[in-house]
Write a protein that binds this DNA or RNA. Structure first.
Lengths: 216, 216
DNA sequence: CCAATATTAAGTCAGGTGCTTGACTTAGCT
DNA sequence: AGCTAAGTCAAGCACCTGACTTAATATTGG
């Protein structure tokens, strides 16, 4: 991370400043509602074009934020994956799917903004593509899907795809909701991120193992 | 709908023109990425301030779009609710929850834009509030929740709230995904909206009836 | 120790935005 | 028929945006 020379160190500091300022503003006001200028100012940069200089377009900035967190999440997922290898229990694989994001948010300490940022980017018609490029590049996700497939061999491929999509939505948006509630001091159904992930896991296991009513 | 006089008729035509143009642009490009000017032009109004004149701010326009569809959806929900009254089968109540939106979209005929619009508005930090005001004002939703509560009396209140939230996310975002796939001619897991709702119902029933692992 | 260079600062510019204004058109009433 | 009021249009306003240019600053390699 930290560059060897003083120069590189300063640069990486400013980049990080911009990244975190952008993440917060995006989460609180909306990605498209915030201009690069506002991000630069919030990052304490006198230069109103600091974002353009360091990252390029706003899409590039979004990608950089996503990538930063993605590496952390990927590590957690790899760790969980190691424990689940070879298991024939759906719950083990669901935990690999469900726990990384909440655990990452817990590790960041409150307040966090990434979940709200993520939810917005994933539903925006143009930013969405950036996120899937960044996320689906993960090979560990593919391993989880394969693990689930081995546990549920009778499930039709279409239904599998459908339920994977559902799981993704639940993970992202429930995390965003909880994050928002924490930010607004609203009561949350669960006391901490770990319990929230447990509740999510209960549901996702039930979801994957639900019987499929045939469509004529 | 149609006013008695010629004048009122013209006005309601213009309003409808703006409403549908806005819905399409918002769904395709993002609510905040589209200016009121662009909406006015797309609606064929020479007046660049037509949106302002007829609706006020953009938030008001969003509210108007939401309300328009909400009335239709509410009718469908009321109809389903009448059939479920008194039932002790979770599936009946879940259908009341899950079917109205897909059925409404099916009735609109393709292409539709409302689901994508809805998903965006529900995840935007400032627009979100408008949507919940508009949606949670529905008394029929409350009846469904009560019906589910009667079927599942042992479920803790927190978990109930949590799972209601999850169901909401699934309904909105899975509809949006399917709508987008239809718009882009991408293959969809289900052949039609009714089957999609069935698949969704399978999952939501499993979700509500899933065992709750205790948190120490 | 100095010159080359990367970063930051500051100002400028054309274009787009919401909002307001005033003139014009036309339906509806007397 | 003629007046009133609502709806439409077109232009202008101040403001903000991204992109670009230039100057100041400080680190680095020689």
């Amino acid at each position: 991370m930290a560059g060897r020379t003083v120069r590189e160190e300063q640069v990486s500091v400013t980049r990080e400043l911009i990244l975190t300022a952008a993440e917060r503003l995006f989460a609180e006001r909306g990605v498209l509602a915030v201009s690069n200028r506002q991000v630069s100012e919030a990052a304490g940069q006198g230069n109103n074009a600091a974002v353009g200089y360091h990252f390029g377009t706003k899409a590039d900035l979004v990608r950089a934020i996503a990538r930063k967190h993605h590496t952390c999440i990927e590590e957690i997922r790899a760790r969980l994956l190691a424990g689940a290898r070879g298991s024939m229990d759906v719950r083990d694989w669901v935990d690999c799917l469900v726990r990384p994001v909440p655990e990452h948010l817990a590790a960041l300490g409150s307040p966090t903004w990434f979940a709200r940022f993520c939810a917005q980017v994933m539903t925006d018609p143009v930013l969405q593509q950036i996120m899937v490029e960044e996320s689906l590049s993960s090979p560990s996700l593919q391993q989880i899907v394969e693990g689930l497939n081995r546990c549920l061999p009778e499930l039709p491929a279409d239904v599998r795809a459908e339920r994977a999509e559902m799981a993704r939505h639940l993970i992202v948006h429930m995390a965003a909701d909880r994050e928002r509630a924490l930010a607004e001091n609203t009561p949350t159904p669960r006391a901490n991120w770990h319990d929230a992930a447990t509740g999510l896991g209960d549901v996702v296991v039930a979801m994957w193992t639900a019987p499929v009513t045939p469509t004529r």
